[in-house]
């Protein structure tokens, strides 16, 4: 049923195209000026030896940057950390947010309080989030360790210990990313036609089955879009981590974007850094396309 657009009889495909273009044009103008051009310039720089020197003249050097990048083990190590971080963040955020959205979509008391509370972390600048959590994680003066010690457990040096640093920052990322995903899912749940849920209930489906067979399929586009973007953003973000750990301890939280930033701005080799950016784009798109294609297929199969 979903082969083409609302196939009204008598409407030619040319008229449709014109309509589509008219709808898209207002969005196109700012995108071309402020996004496509800088993006093209950025992608292109990866093939040059551009630096940030005064009056720098960038030469086209083909694939040299990429060849050099292949042997850069620090980059690939940070790439690995980035993957772990991004997958963990997006999956955990989705799970936590789904649970919360389901709770908020019921008739529990307290839910309006939760709904407001759930939004606050979202409205906080990342730097404040980072500093606030540094206080919580403080090994000497933090409430978390105080609570552990109160029940007789040993104190943990959350951000300083090699094994807990990455999980600790992931928790913070989930804390600050969950509200947004929750809101998106909640909005999606509101769209699920109540007739379908009621029909399923009449058929004797319990809550879990209703969720699995009615709500979840209807939510698929939203889940898909928000997880994919969550993955990209986590992969791309470094502000939160930079304030919390500066990539430490011992490089355990050195995210690829932090690495690229250092090369671009601190080392001022913007050409080489852009090559890193190009490689990251390709890598992330590969990972994503596997996910997206698989999900699209599933979606089609279920229809």
């Amino acid at each position: 049923m979903s082969a083409t657009v609302v196939s009204r009889p008598g409407v030619s495909s040319r008229a449709q195209r014109r309509e589509a273009i008219a709808l898209v044009v207002p969005a196109m103008a700012p995108i071309i000026v402020f996004s496509v051009i800088p993006l093209m310039a950025g992608v292109y720089l990866g093939f040059t030896d551009a630096t940030l020197r005064r009056n720098d003249v960038a030469d086209f050097i083909g694939l040299d940057n990429f060849v050099r990048l292949m042997g850069d083990r620090f980059f690939w190590e940070s790439f690995r950390i980035g993957l772990v971080w991004a997958v963990a963040c997006s999956v955990l955020t989705l799970l936590c947010a789904m649970g919360l959205a389901l709770l908020l979509n019921t008739d529990l008391r307290l839910k309006s309080l939760t709904r407001v509370l759930a939004l606050i972390p979202w409205a906080m600048p990342p730097v404040v989030v980072a500093i606030m959590w540094r206080m919580i994680y403080s090994p000497t003066a933090g409430p978390l360790n105080a609570a552990l010690e109160a029940v007789g457990l040993p104190a943990v040096n959350w951000l300083g210990d090699f094994s807990t640093a990455l999980p600790a920052v992931i928790v913070v990322a989930v804390w600050s990313g969950m509200p947004q995903t929750t809101v998106l899912l909640l909005a999606g749940m509101q769209q699920v036609p109540t007739e379908q849920l009621e029909a399923a209930a009449v058929d004797g489906a319990n809550a879990a089955r209703r969720f699995w067979h009615v709500t979840l399929p209807a939510l698929r586009p939203v889940v898909l879009a928000s997880t994919a973007l969550d993955f990209i953003w986590s992969f791309n973000s470094f502000g939160l981590v930079y304030v919390m750990t500066e990539g430490g301890p011992g490089g355990r939280t050195m995210l690829p974007m932090l690495f690229t930033y250092l090369e671009a701005f601190k080392n001022r080799n913007i050409g080489y850094a852009s090559a890193m950016g190009d490689v990251l784009v390709i890598a992330v798109l590969l990972v994503l396309s596997v996910y997206l294609i698989q999900q699209f297929r599933k979606g089609k199969a279920e229809r």
Binding site: E246, G247, P249, G250, M254, F259, E263, K266
Partner: peptide, 23 residues
């Protein structure tokens, strides 16, 4: 030194941290 910052952030600081953690 040109590449100091890059070395400091990607090499030296992690290495010193590992040493200070007795790793």
């Amino acid at each position: 030194v040109d590449a100091y910052t890059q070395w400091k952030d990607t090499v030296a600081t992690p290495a010193f941290q590992r040493f200070l953690a007795d790793e």
